[in-house]
Each structure stands twice: as structure tokens, then as C-alpha cells.
């Protein structure tokens, strides 16, 4: 049982690291702001979820697990909102946004 828990934790951390590596490659390979931001936001949400879940498994189920869960909650609330605000700032300030992506007129 102990081994299963540790192996599950290691696999989850590895998956999280894979997501992070993908996000980092995307961050450097893409050229436009919104594309790069999408990659970075992906790493910040999915990657952190897998890494922290893996840490929860590794640490065992006690009070620290609850703390890690709270960290996931906080990051999942804070990170997408900041990405949304950055995208909004780009949308408001960039004049030629229609040449880069589709814009739905309200």
C-alpha cells in the first residue's frame, strides 16, 4: 500500500512536470502574446494541479494534505483571473487585434 501511494505520487509529479515543460516550450516558441499567455496559463493551472496532487500523495494524508489542497484552491482562483486580466489589457490596448485572431463583436 505504501509503495502504491509513493509510486502514484511520483507519476503525478512527473505528469505535472511534463505539463510544465510543454508550457515552457510553448512560452518560448509562440510569437503572439495571447498564444504565449495561453501556454503559460496552462502550466500554471494544470501543471500545478498535478504537481500538488503528487505531493499530497507523497506526504501522506494528514494536515499538510489539507494545506496543499488550499494552495490548489488559491492558485486556481488567482491564476486564471490574472491571465484573464492580461488578455483583457491586450485586447483593449492592441489596435490591430483583428489581424491576429478572430474578434466576436457584441
Amino acid at each position: 500500500m505504501e509503495n502504491v501511494r509513493i509510486i502514484a505520487g511520483i507519476i503525478l509529479v512527473a505528469v505535472g512536470l511534463f505539463v510544465y515543460i510543454t508550457a515552457t516550450i510553448g512560452l518560448f516558441r509562440f510569437h503572439y502574446v495571447l498564444n504565449r499567455m495561453h501556454a503559460a496559463a496552462l502550466g500554471d493551472t494544470l501543471g500545478i494541479l498535478f504537481v500538488l496532487l503528487g505531493l499530497m500523495f507523497l506526504v501522506g494524508f494528514n494536515f499538510h494534505t489539507l494545506r496543499l489542497g488550499l494552495i490548489i484552491c488559491f492558485l486556481w482562483m488567482a491564476s486564471p483571473v490574472s491571465s484573464h486580466l492580461l488578455a483583457k489589457a491586450e485586447f483593449v490596448t492592441f489596435k490591430h487585434i483583428k489581424s491576429e485572431c478572430e474578434v466576436v463583436e457584441k
Partner: peptide, 15 residues
């Protein structure tokens, strides 16, 4: 007011 930001801020600021 950005509705997403204000809703999340209402949750996060007291915490």
C-alpha cells in the same frame, strides 16, 4: 467593473 475580478476578489480579500 470587471465582473470576474470583483467576484474572485470578494472571495480572496477576506481570506
Amino acid at each position: 467593473e470587471d465582473i470576474i475580478l470583483t467576484k474572485i476578489a470578494r472571495l480572496l480579500i477576506p481570506c
